[in-house]
């Protein structure tokens, strides 16, 4: 039990002291993951809704592929983005490797399939339910996309939170493309991995508790905002 006590005490001390280095890491973690989830939502929500409504050859294959990509191993995504951004890779000229931008790109690759796949399922169900109503209003399928996303917004908040959970918890991809450079690309998860490497298990677990607390707060805000929105909608 002793290890866990030390970790809890460490976590509390880190939060209470408002340690500047820790704050930088927290801000970077949040900045990278929130940006990545925002971009992934802008790509994934319309993409998922469009696949739900569109009827084309090979649609089933696309659905299966996107569902499968939800299980994309982060290290593989990281390696893919690394080879893309490396100086010897196709986008090497931009010098983006080992920057927060590279980490955002890697997380977008990881999170977009999750958001697209779950959105596809939700909108698919909704479309089955409201097809007649929407077509009688004269809305074409493409024009129904924003309407359906809007109608499903409360469910889609959970979808976006699932994507955020993946991004915040992920370490394999950002370690490869970010390089865990102190003060530049060191995030909560890569810092935890580093402290584990150094054998400072209490500090590592303490940082883990801080991260978990952060994710908890974000989810609480999203949940209660949803409750308030539902109440306002009557």
């Amino acid at each position: 039990m002793n290890d866990f006590d030390t970790a809890l005490a460490t976590a509390w001390r880190l939060i209470a002291a408002g340690d500047a280095a820790l704050m930088d890491i927290v801000v970077l973690s949040l900045g990278v993951s929130l940006t990545a989830v925002l971009i992934a939502s802008i790509l994934g929500l319309p993409l998922g809704a469009t696949i739900a409504l569109a009827r084309f050859r090979g649609r089933d294959a696309v659905v299966v592929a996107i569902n499968a990509l939800m299980g994309l191993p982060p290290v593989v995504a990281g390696l893919f983005v690394y080879l893309l951004l490396s100086r010897s890779g196709p986008l090497g000229a931009y010098g983006l490797l080992f920057t927060p931008t590279a980490m955002v790109v890697a997380q977008v690759v990881l999170v977009t399939p999750i958001i697209a796949a779950l959105t596809r399922q939700i909108v698919d169900d909704l479309w089955r339910e409201y097809r007649d109503e929407l077509t009688s209003l004269g809305a074409g399928k493409l024009r129904a996309v924003p309407t359906l996303i809007w109608d499903a917004r409360l469910s889609l908040v959970t979808v976006v939170l699932a994507g955020l959970g993946r991004a915040m918890a992920e370490v394999g991809a950002i370690l490869v493309v970010g390089g865990n450079i102190a003060g530049v690309t060191r995030t909560m998860t890569t810092a935890i991995a580093l402290e584990t490497s150094k054998g400072d298990l209490a500090l590592a677990l303490g940082l883990g508790i801080v991260l978990l607390t952060l994710v908890l707060v974000i989810n609480a805000v999203a949940h209660f905002a949803g409750v308030a929105a539902r109440r306002a909608a009557g």
Partner: peptide, 30 residues
């Protein structure tokens, strides 16, 4: 729907913003 589009545009602007801009003006080596 218009509100929703506006929200999306706002989100896009936030992304383009300086959220994760690194201290690129300082010289550094890797």
């Amino acid at each position: 729907r218009r509100l929703f589009t506006a929200a999306l545009a706002l989100a896009a602007a936030a992304v383009a913003g300086p959220t994760v801009a690194a201290a690129a003006d300082k010289p550094f080596i890797t």
